[in-house]
Design a protein around this nucleic acid. Structure first.
Lengths: 136, 136
DNA sequence: TATGAAAGACTAACTAA
DNA sequence: TTAGTTAGTCTTTCATA
């Protein structure tokens, strides 16, 4: 895992359809080098898969969730992860326990998700932030 | 957005490199139909990008960044987005301005990234949380 | 790294609903 | 007028040296 690998991953994260020839030109190596390295990165599990990121909705938000002290946060998190608009659920260190990233149709729907979260057993507080812009 | 669109998205989410011909065969339509629909889904913003999912490092963290009041947060965010371990940079509403998600080799490296962030002009504070677990 | 062969994607003209 | 198809061409990837 050297710097060239990291640069290749960077390009593919931004656009996984970038031709190997183009990546090679950009990074000053041949098409074959890029191809061999991408294959190796896949075998090593560094590249988990080629995929698409979709945004079915128009509003992304981060909902931070606090859970009662004596409760398994995973149980709460796993429930939330089932909801269709939920992109990620992270168990985190720090003040609050769980961070949920959602992608909803509109702010009204975000609000419904917040309400739904607060209604879960063992959820004590939530704190929401809209994601105004995303850079990769 | 009909059922065929949803099936196409499903296939691409699992493997974005599946040839159009193969998707077409599977879903009983021609290669051209798949291609036209994928193009339309991209134009409509339903498919945001073709990308890879990676697991490069062993430690993921969320670094929340506060920026001086009179500064364009995008300028700061764009700089950070260039660093290789950075997965996302979000401009968010709420107390702090920017959320950076990083995926680094170890906590030492996370610490270096925090230091590097704090050394940027116009960054006033940072607050870091380790991502202990992720559910998709 | 370089090259030719194979695979896949794209263009554009056409058909059907 | 829109969605789908098809044949021919171009681009990218792959295998081999």
């Amino acid at each position: 895992m050297d710097d060239l690998d990291r640069q290749i991953l960077d390009v593919l994260r931004r656009d996984a359809r970038t031709p190997y020839t183009e990546i090679g030109d950009e990074l000053g190596v041949s098409e074959g080098t890029i191809r061999n390295r991408v294959e190796r990165l896949q075998e090593d599990g560094v590249i988990e898969r080629f995929t698409i990121s979709t945004s079915t909705g128009n509003v992304k938000a981060m909902i931070e969730v606090d859970v009662a002290v004596d409760v398994d946060t995973h149980r709460v998190g796993d429930q939330i992860a089932e909801w269709p608009e939920v992109d990620f659920v992270w168990q985190v260190s720090g003040e609050l326990d769980i961070v949920v990233v959602v992608d909803a149709d509109d702010t009204g729907r975000v609000n419904e998700l917040i309400t739904k979260t607060r209604e879960l057993d063992d959820v004590t507080t939530t704190k929401t932030r809209l994601i105004l812009d995303e850079t990769l």
